[in-house]
Design a binder for these strands. Structure first.
Lengths: 148, 148
DNA sequence: TAATTTACCCACTACTTTGGTAGGTATATT
DNA sequence: AATATACCTACCAAAGTAGTGGGTAAATTA
């Protein structure tokens, strides 16, 4: 699994903040309701985003979170690398992997490396701005209208 | 994780059989020794390959396994789909996934679908024959020789 | 026929990750 | 002072991973 709920929820939260805010702070209570994600679980994900300066949070009434940058300046790859343990497709390519004594003669390693490269390349090519307002339904309606 | 040890070992076993056999049966004891994988664990993986007719096994002295087809007729994607629970990069695209009520409005689903498509396309484009004799070392020596 | 070698089968276990929940504290606003 | 919010720590249930142990069945060889 490249992405578990933690990474996927992180993406959805950031998109929700981007879509519902124009600089003001958004309460997680509202995001949780809109995204149908438990508030308690969101509270475990947000500190990761705060500590890496993807969002800024303020306490107290009227508080919440806002993005630190423009949506076009976040890539999906960056967000997943922070929230997932590792996005490598196989254990031997994970950051904490022990060196493998068979690596130099491994018949499959070059393939895994190329797959890893392709996954990263794709995820790094997509920004939060690309994801905003993007849905299957929207794409279908574009297709139906002939605007393809 | 796209591939756990089960799928990776399955690939290595099939490559080992392909490289060390010319039609005769190869004992798992020997594959286990060459690949440094526990024989007991291999014995859990092979029945999966037998039941899907990727290999044929015979009992008794001189027995073992051999490939059912030419190495060029196995794709990595096919092998991993049999040995891994699922190679989808996210839970909502797995075969046994429950329908998601948010799918039509999900901002991230099209991206996950495209990622899934790219992973499958790549893994389906590589055959066992491609992997045989392929190593980093071999690629390095090709590069060093200027034969790139 | 007996011994040996191999595939094959079933039960069990230790460990890690995932996806949460519970209950509270700190901080800011009204 | 009351309220609303972020933030923190601990805990838990379920599932998946990566095995091990202890056999049985079938084929070959001596």
């Amino acid at each position: 699994m490249v992405s578990s709920t933690r990474g996927r929820y992180a993406l959805r939260v950031l998109i929700d903040i981007a879509e519902n805010s124009h600089g003001e702070y958004i309460a997680m209570k509202d995001v949780a309701a809109r995204q149908e994600i438990s508030l308690k679980y969101l509270e475990k994900i947000l500190p990761i985003l705060v500590s890496h300066h993807l969002v800024e949070g303020i306490h107290g009434k009227g508080g919440g979170y806002r993005l630190s940058r423009d949506p076009s300046e976040y890539t999906v790859g960056e967000i997943l690398r922070l929230t997932e343990n590792d996005i490598a497709p196989v254990a031997c390519l994970q950051n904490d992997a022990l060196p493998c004594s068979r690596a130099a003669n491994c018949r499959t390693l070059p393939m895994w490396e190329e797959l890893d490269r392709r996954i990263s390349e794709y995820l790094d090519s997509i920004t939060l701005a690309d994801l905003m307002r993007s849905t299957e339904a929207a794409q279908d309606s574009i297709a139906a209208s002939g605007r393809v």
